[in-house]
Design a protein around this nucleic acid. Structure first.
Length: 510
RNA sequence: GAUCGCUUAGCUCAGCUGGUAGAGCAACGCCCUUUUAAGGCGUGGGUCCUGGGUUCGAACCCCAGAGCGAUCACCA
């Protein structure tokens, strides 16, 4: 807390005290019987309509226009703003006019929560308005809100915003203010919620079960990333915050479930930027007796359904470009993509040849890279930038995919795809590796990489191998980054815009 | 992690070659019963991000640091 209060904060504290002196509790305990939301009144009220003779609303007082014995004000509730008409003799019908003259005009401030009862009418100017008969203080605000005003420009018809609250640091650190003051921000989070709801419905309708698996794991596996580490005191053992939940979900398939999915937080101790937050939300789903071709059809149905639910159509606009999410999505094997966009056929090349290709194409790589990472580097540099429209990139190098099944016909590749939309990876799926001996060898290869200094290599998970030894049916698995999908559907370029409280450095002084 | 940029009133921002800080909105006071970023008149409000330095004098120049943003690298 700052030890010096601003003039405005001092004034609000004085107002708080004066309310108490008038026997008005600025923080009353009793429930307030809200009957209507601002948005519902604005959409359904017409002049003379029935059912609006007595309404009761609550929210923040956002603006006052005082004109002597009558005033207009704006109330902001969870649905939006509505205008209030408050006249002195209506809310203070007796001799004592202090509720209007003192409480409303002097002691209330922008940001205070109030409750109003009254009837709805339309003003001369055509604004749907609540004529207030009763005013109640519900909660006093003692810190001034940023004031954002908007006006419709008469010439252009465009909405003009004044004093917008735009500083990203303040918006993210004090998201509550961002939400109060910038109405569009709520829209991103509404869509986020819809996306997740639609996803659950899609899976539940097909009979797959939502499950929960450990966030604290003794062995971190299922992805290539650096974990957060922690320590359990009673067990005196190190634990890792999960970077993925893949290996636990597959254990459940071993246990006999046909389909399991989890939507939850993953944690990766890596860099942060406009597409990375240390904790992010992922969907993972595993379905028995399926393969990655089946999973391509499932994913395009899922994404298409979510898009239609959220936007009402199959097309989205991202950064000024049109993207069609109509089915089916294009399928492009990775090596074929490299041939198409980089003009090189790298099939069967060894490390030397791949290094030469990188040099020829002016792609910077670490000389310690193995085959897989070299191919990935070429792909990222030459193919990814072209993947605006939804595209399944299929058949990845085996070195990059220690949990995916070997390709049924192609040597050195696995049955894996990544779905790219707007040049970003949105989904990642395999025909899951269920051969326990192959899996053990793949882990051993990862251990070698770790020994060579790859700090993202996977650790051996002996219990997972043991589970596979008991037998896992052929299974297809999928992961989708929810935050990225929401960014796509809300046309946002920063992950911070779709996460309520993005990670930030410690605030120096509050 | 690297490079560049930003940080001034509650909010959005001015502030010239260094001369002792300003506007609009918000706040406070007065006027005003259907207004529309209401209007009119008046008043107050500042750790100029922090810490050093140069100078008679620093919001401004120099050094160090912090936070945020953009680009790049790694990753979803």
């Amino acid at each position: 807390m700052q030890n010096t209060l601003s003039e405005q904060e001092l004034i609000r504290r004085e107002s708080l005290q004066k309310l108490r002196e008038l026997n008005i509790d600025p923080y009353p305990a009793a429930l307030y019987p809200v009957s209507h939301l601002a948005a519902d009144i604005k959409t359904s009220y017409e002049d003379g309509a029935e059912g609006f003779e007595e309404v009761c609303l609550a929210g923040r007082l956002m603006m006052r226009r005082i004109m002597g014995k009558a005033s207009f004000a704006e109330l902001l509730d969870s649905s939006g703003r509505i205008q209030l008409y408050i006249s002195r003799d209506d809310i203070s019908p007796d001799e004592d006019k202090s509720l209007y003259n003192t409480v409303f005009k002097k002691l209330l401030d922008i940001g205070d929560f109030i409750g109003v009862k009254g009837f709805v009418f339309t003003t001369r100017v055509g604004e749907t308005t609540v004529h207030v008969k009763e005013l109640t203080v519900l909660s006093k605000s003692i810190k001034p809100l940023p004031i954002v005003k908007t006006r419709i420009d008469e010439e252009t018809g465009q909405e003009v915003t004044y004093d917008a609250f735009t500083d990203p640091e303040l918006r993210y650190r004090q998201r509550y203010l961002d939400l109060v003051v910038n109405p569009n921000v709520k829209q991103h989070f509404t869509i986020r919620s819809q996306v997740i709801r639609e996803m659950r419905k899609f899976f539940d309708d097909r009979g797959w079960m939502e499950v929960e698996t450990p966030v604290l794991q003794p062995v971190h596996g299922g992805a290539a990333a650096r974990p957060f580490t922690t320590h359990h005191n009673a067990l005196d053992m190190p634990l890792f915050m999960r970077i993925a939940n893949e290996l636990y979900l597959k254990r459940l398939i071993v246990g006999g479930y046909d389909g399991v999915y989890e939507i939850g937080k993953m944690f990766r101790n890596e860099g942060m930027d406009r597409t990375h937050n240390p904790e992010f939300t992922a969907l993972e789903i595993y379905v028995a007796y399926k393969d990655y071709f089946w999973m391509m059809e499932m994913v395009e149905q899922l994404i298409n359904a979510i898009c239609r639910q959220v936007t009402g159509g199959e097309n989205i606009e991202v950064g000024g470009e049109q993207i069609s999410l109509a089915m089916p999505f294009r399928r492009l094997p990775m090596l074929q993509g490299i041939e198409e966009y980089a003009g090189v056929n790298i099939k069967g090349m060894d490390i030397e040849a791949l290094l030469q290709v990188c040099q020829d194409l002016d792609i910077e790589v670490d000389p310690k890279y193995g085959k897989g990472k070299l191919i990935d580097a070429i792909f990222a540099a030459k193919v990814e930038p072209h993947l605006l429209q939804p595209t399944y990139i299929t058949d990845y190098p085996i070195e990059l995919s220690p949990l995916a099944k070997k390709h049924r016909t192609e040597e050195g590749l696995v049955e894996r795809y990544e779905l790219f939309i707007n040049r970003q990876e949105i989904a990642n799926a395999y025909s899951e590796l269920n051969d326990p001996i192959d899996q053990r060898e793949r882990f051993e290869d990862q251990l070698k990489l770790a020994a060579e200094g790859d700090d993202e290599a996977m650790a051996m998970d002996l219990d997972f191998v043991r589970a596979l030894e008991y037998g896992m049916p052929p299974t297809s698995g999928l992961g989708i980054g929810i935050d990225r999908l929401v960014m796509l559907l809300t046309n946002q370029t920063s992950i911070q815009e779709v996460i309520f409280f993005p990670q930030m450095k410690k605030e120096v002084r509050i």
